[in-house]
Amino acid sequence: MNDPATIIALVVITLISLATSAEALLRLRGSSNTARASAWPAVGITAAILGSTALFCYRWLVVNEDYALLQAHVDGLLLVAALLGAMVLVLRTRRELRGLAAFMLPVQTLILLWAICAASFTFELFAVATPVKTLHRVGVYLGTLCVAVAAAAGGLYLLTQRQLRNKRGGDPGQPSNPGGNLETVERLIIRTATLGFALLTVGLITGAVIVAASETTRLGAGWWYSPKVLFALAAWLMYAIVMCVRHTTSFRGARAAWLAIVGLALMLGVFGIMSAMPGQSKTNTNIHHAPNHLPDAEDR
């Protein structure tokens, strides 16, 4: 499973993403001239997108068995990183969300770092033999992409709100202003959280179906209170609340932003349990992992 080319390429892409993130964060606090002149962010983001996409395709066509699209956790993380980069490119063209890149790019870097770990440590392949399993993974990964954007928007919301409350550092019309207005950012949080909620719901339901349909499940009777499932349910609940902030008004504003960030942390916790703690499979928490030579092992 440890493909050296994958790891080397991932390290390079991660370094590019890291440099771009650092530049975006500096830009957030930087002077007017650097804010105007530098073309690096677009170059860096584009390079990270192209690199992630190329590596995803390479793994799909060369590394993965039977040309499976999502055969390992690293594939899913690469997909999320590439799509996240594409969203940054699109969103940074909007003046009212120009500061979002500074929050989304670190998330992309984090996901790529995670992908390096996943590429190094994953010892079993996904089983993508049935449509339900494919749907489960697509739901989980695209849901993660949405909640990553929601969390980044949450960070931007908190920063903008803090600057508005402090009445300094974010002078109107100043390039150092993180950009974005609270209303737009809050709307983005709600929309991405709603979409993420829907996709995670699909992921949860299909995950439950997969486990329930297994005749000899490796998860055992107590699978539903395993850390992975509990973390996933907690994250799902966070986004359920964020999605409804327009109706549950006491969760508006900063609280919704915090919930979006905590939700992402919980999702990363789910991935952590799934990927970085392979030993947990023996305690019935790693429902994704199956022996390399048995692609549909989790159904056994």
């Binding site: 009212e96 903008t160 508005l164 109107p172 207005n181 609270l182």
Partner: peptide, 13 residues
Amino acid sequence: SVAADFAKQIFDR
């Protein structure tokens, strides 16, 4: 104009 600009940082439309 400063007040109007601050308002634009809070509201979109």
